[in-house]
Design a protein around this nucleic acid. Structure first.
Lengths: 336, 336
DNA sequence: GTGAAAGCGCTAACAT
DNA sequence: ATGTTAGCGCTTTCAC
């Protein structure tokens, strides 16, 4: 006994009016008399009417739904970005479909396809670390679905972008290490194909140079997850004897390294100072607490979705593509 | 110049066949000749045809989309459940729409409405801690949208359920504390309106009783977030002098308490042993590393969505509602 | 093996 | 202030 979801037609029949009247009444169209509007609303509520978004979307040729793709939910940063996006999107009458790529290009492509099949009106994407082929993004654009990239951006794709000033941040972090007397600073870097990785490394280089500290290429390791810390264990421990500080490209990696060194008897920060990046809540759980650089995830999410909705609601405005840059703050704790 | 998304009609016109033929060819209907099928597929690929899920859903009266609501993405447990759900759902041709309630009943209700308007075929829900009114769940069921609850369940609502054996887990945790010589065990409990909270407290009580340890009601505090630890700071520190162990209802809370006590000079676990629950990755970051109880999130997600899809695909089977219980493992680390 | 036609639920231009 | 009608993209029954 399938309890049928009431449709506009059902309401129309029950009330002896036409479907269009019902539609107009529900959408508070000014032409409809107050009385009719009231009757329709009352009856609709009584039968628990719920608009069929599929039908509305099909009619309007847009779904009022935005697609979000993040690498992983567990990262506090991304979850704050999502919160920012949700708050603005809901308040403007948009829904969101959220996907995670698990840092996998294949999964990211599947996600995009699913979102496009769902006819999302626009996309908010932070590409996976393994994404080298951008054809799925261009495909979306060819279908006239705008993309706003956040945090990690893709060069050469016409789109709005919202990023942190990763260069400044890692410059500040590195500078702090130098100011506090460190000279031989190991850098655990993210892949250089993503902007975030490149920019954070660039900040590190420039800070060293500016302070007249010679860059030692030996001190730079591609290593941006706790897993890779384990994998590079030997190498890291070997280098550790030769450095007095470590700047890891994110907090998870920083803490994994911290653990590793502590297990080998190093005292942090006395023998080796350690910094992360991102100010994840785990930074305060680590012991010693982690010096890091805070990012404005929530604000970035709000900005990204605002730019997207603005573009969607002014399709003919030919708005120029913009890149908004957010400044974070150095957070000095115990580890450096 | 809106680059039009190709539709079945467009393909039909271009190829000089009828839309029904195109539809059948794309769906590999056996009636269609191999030649036609090939021509249709080739042309569809060349124009990057993408089925319009909205239209398909409208026609079929189902969206092949499942709705997921979790309290918060950042919790490792929930994100593993989501991964489990996604893997099975994708492999069976379903998409997912994921929402977070932020532990807020209001937001949870909005989420459910949005998902129902999207005509999801079924729901996978872990209710928020603040949810006391269940009308949004019954509403979904009245619309014939089945719900599978996971981790946190709601009594009295006809639905499948997938849970951890929280009773056994907290019994094991408490028992471990007793076995290692602790007698005065503080318990930081979750709200008793959610099953998880009740069950974990029940395990604590029963373990104490079974070992002949008298329960001291004074040692039980409603406190299940780091925030609440801060709020109950005085009270906790006051009690701390009187106990030799603390069992917190989750790892975040456990670690917050650990920090608090350490700052006040307590040595963990020598003076006070601490355990959490859930085996979040932060348990290994804490210092000392946290003794806790591991939950099988990924497996629970797979099971939950399997039950849901099974029900969806056998609408007339009148399958009895089931509750699947997953057993976790005690993870003994340094803190207890 | 293929086509014509109807309809899923909704909206909006065009009546009246 | 309200009704009629057509159509969004797709599937499917019924023809042939």
């Amino acid at each position: 006994m399938k309890s049928h979801q009431a449709s506009i037609n059902d309401i129309a029949k029950a009330l002896g009016v036409s479907p269009s009247t019902v539609s107009r009444a529900l959408n508070n169209h000014p032409d409809i008399s107050a009385g009719t509007r009231q009757r329709v609303h009352d009856y609709a509520r009584s039968v628990k009417y719920r608009p069929n978004i599929l039908a509305v979307g099909l009619k309007h040729q847009r779904s009022f739904t935005l697609g979000i793709i993040v690498p992983e939910f567990v990262h506090h940063f991304f979850s704050t970005v999502i919160s920012g996006i949700e708050d603005i999107a809901y308040s403007k009458g948009y829904r969101v479909m959220i996907c995670q790529s698990n840092e996998d290009q294949q999964r990211e492509m599947i996600n995009i396809q699913a979102l496009l099949e769902h006819r999302v009106d626009g996309l908010l994407v932070s590409p996976s670390k393994s994404t080298l082929d951008y054809s799925h993004f261009t495909q979306a654009l060819e279908s006239n679905i705008p993309i706003v990239f956040f945090d990690r951006i893709v060069a050469g794709i016409p789109s709005d972008k919202v990023i942190s000033n990763d260069y400044k941040g890692s410059f500040a972090i590195t500078n702090h290490l130098i100011q506090t007397g460190r000279r031989k600073i190991m850098h655990l870097a993210a892949p250089q194909n993503i902007t975030v990785g490149r920019e954070r490394s660039r900040g590190y280089f420039d800070a060293l140079e500016k302070q007249g500290v010679t860059v030692n290429e030996q001190h730079i390791l591609p290593c941006d997850t706790p897993f890779k810390v384990q994998a590079a264990k030997e190498k890291i421990l070997q280098l550790a004897g030769d450095v007095d500080a470590i700047f890891a490209v994110n907090d998870f990696t920083a803490i994994a390294v911290m653990k590793l060194l502590q297990e080998s008897g190093y005292r942090i920060p006395e023998q080796i100072a350690i910094t992360g990046y991102g100010d994840d809540p785990i930074a305060t759980i680590a012991k010693p607490t982690l010096t890091t650089f805070q990012q404005k995830g929530y604000e970035m999410g709000r900005e990204a979705v605002s730019m997207l909705i603005n573009r969607l609601e002014n399709p003919d405005a030919n708005i120029e593509y913009q890149t908004k840059v957010f400044q974070g703050n150095l957070v000095i704790r115990e580890s450096a």
